[in-house]
Structure formats: C-alpha cells, structure tokens
C-alpha cells in the first residue's frame, strides 16, 4: 500500500470543479424537459387517449426496461446512422436527450400515481364548477399531485446528476470525463476517482438538504 498523494488531490479539486457547471447544466436541462414530457405522459395515461395511450405505454416500457447506457449509445452512435438529420448530434445533446427520455419514463409513472392519489372530490368539484378537463388538471389536480410527487422527483434528479457521468462515454468532458483524462496523465487513478466521487457526493448531499427543506415547506403548505 502506498500513501495518498494529497497535494495531487487538492490540486485536482479546482480542475474538476470547473466541470460542475456542465454536469449540473446537463442534469438541469434534462430535468426540465423530463418534467414536461413526464407530466404530459402522466396526464395521458390517466385520461387515456386512444392509440396515443398504447404508444405512451410502449415508450414508458422501453425506457424503463433498457439500461441508460444502452439508450445513450443508441442515440449517439446508432441513430445518426439511420436518421441523417441527427448526423451532427453532439455528445452533450445526445446525453440530455437520453437522460430526458429515460427519466421521463420513470417520472411519468410517479406523477401518474400522484394524480390518481388526488381525492375524487377534487375532480368532481372542478367539473361541477364547469372547468374543462385541461383546466381541472392544470389548476387543481396537477398542483396537488406535484406536492405528493415532489420528493420522488427530487430523487430522480439526484439519479440524473449521477447519470450525467455516463456522458463521458459519448466523448463529453464533464466531471467524470475530465477526471478520466487527468488520471490517464498522472496514473493516480485512485486519487482522481476518489476526488470526483467526493465531489458528486457533496453535490448530492447538498441537494438532499434542499429536498428536506422543500418537503417541510410542502407539508406546511395548504395548512394555514
């Protein structure tokens, strides 16, 4: 056993920190797209639009049933070969696309469960005052479902941040990719990957703190 090269590790921290914006940026973009897509799919799964429903079910089943890494490779290396419009796709775009679709499939199921958990009386009261189905969803049902689903959705966001590390396999130099390059130069693999692990860990812990804050806020809401 050899001693850890602490100077090397300390020197590496600012280098990897420089890639935090790209990592978080990819996660945030994918989360925003995934939230929209997941909400649309969840609402569709609840109101069940013929034909579209089968397609959404198939979509959810596929993206939950296959590994994220396989999906990323499919988008980045595979799709450009068959869809010429995607020939110029870059790694960041492919990663955001893959993360979006993969996590939207999971999030759609949580949001759907949360929607179905909203008390029947809320649906009936919305209908009774003459709201359209869209108004009922947007004004009454989804806001209440969001409150129930929020903690789970933050968990998916955390998974998504960790999932961005797979983007390095598409040639993206994000936190993981940068670490990989540094380590390949110094041969200090243990030090390098330990530093990046701790940095991911700190980001996720900070988010968990935020999550607890949000949960407390949400539990207080509607109760004053």
């Amino acid at each position: 056993m050899r001693a850890l090269d602490l100077d090397y590790m300390l020197g590496l921290v600012p280098v990897i920190l420089g890639y935090v914006p790209l990592t978080l940026g990819m996660a945030l973009a994918a989360m925003a797209f995934a939230l929209v897509l997941a909400s649309l799919m969840a609402v569709e799964r609840v109101v069940k639009i013929p034909v579209l429903d089968s397609f959404v079910k198939l979509f959810i089943s596929f993206f939950r049933g296959t590994p994220l890494l396989v999906q990323l490779f499919l988008f980045y290396y595979g799709l450009p070969q068959v869809v010429s419009a995607l020939a110029q796709i870059n790694g960041v775009t492919a990663a955001i696309m893959g993360l979006t679709l993969h996590f939207a499939a999971y999030m759609a199921e949580s949001i759907r469960a949360a929607i179905l958990g909203v008390d029947r009386s809320q649906w009936e009261a919305s209908q009774a005052v003459g709201m359209t189905q869209g108004q009922m969803m947007a004004r009454i049902v989804l806001p209440q479902a969001a409150r129930v689903a929020a903690p789970t959705l933050v968990n998916y966001f955390i998974d998504m941040i960790k999932g961005t590390s797979l983007a390095f396999t598409l040639g993206v130099t994000e936190m993981m990719g940068a670490t990989q390059k540094e380590a390949a130069g110094s041969f200090l693999y243990f030090e390098a990957f330990l530093v990046v692990a701790v940095l991911y860990w700190i980001i996720v812990e900070a988010l968990s703190l935020l999550q607890r804050g949000v949960e407390i806020r949400l539990n207080r809401a509607y109760a004053r």
């Binding site: 009386s121 809320q122 009261a125 919305s126 009774a128 005052v129 809401a221 509607y222």
Partner: peptide, 11 residues
C-alpha cells in the same frame, strides 16, 4: 353544486 363532504379545492 354543494357537496356533502365540502370538496373545497385543497390547494
């Protein structure tokens, strides 16, 4: 419509 269980919008 006035409901037996009030059915106020909880949010």
């Amino acid at each position: 419509f006035v409901f037996q269980n009030y059915a106020l919008f909880a949010n």
